[in-house]
Simulated assay, not measured.
Amino acid sequence: MITLERAQKMIEVALAKGAEESWKPLTAVVLDAGGHIIAFARGDGAAPGRFDIARAKAYGAVMLGMGGKAQMARAEAQAYFMNAVNGIYGGQTCPVPGGVLIRDAEGGVIGAIGVTGDTSDNDADAALAGIEAAGFAGEA
Rank of each mutant, 00 (worst) to 15 (best):
T3R: 12
A7S: 13
K9T: 15
I11K: 09
A16N: 12
G18Y: 10
P25N: 12
T27V: 09
A28E: 05
V30L: 04
L31E: 00
H36F: 01
I38Q: 00
A39G: 07
F40K: 09
A41F: 00
R42M: 03
G43M: 03
P48I: 13
G49I: 02
R50Q: 06
R50I: 00
F51K: 09
R55I: 00
A56Q: 12
K57M: 13
Y59G: 01
G60C: 08
M63E: 11
L64N: 11
G67A: 15
G67H: 13
G68A: 11
G68F: 07
Q71A: 09
A75E: 06
E76G: 13
A79H: 12
Y80N: 15
M82E: 03
G87M: 05
Y89E: 06
G90T: 12
G91E: 11
Q92F: 03
C94L: 15
P97V: 10
G99L: 08
V100S: 11
V100P: 00
V100K: 00
V100C: 06
L101I: 08
G108N: 13
G108V: 09
T116Y: 00
D118M: 04
T119Q: 08
A124R: 06
D125W: 04
A129F: 08
E132C: 03
E132N: 15
A133T: 15
A137P: 00
G138I: 15
E139S: 14
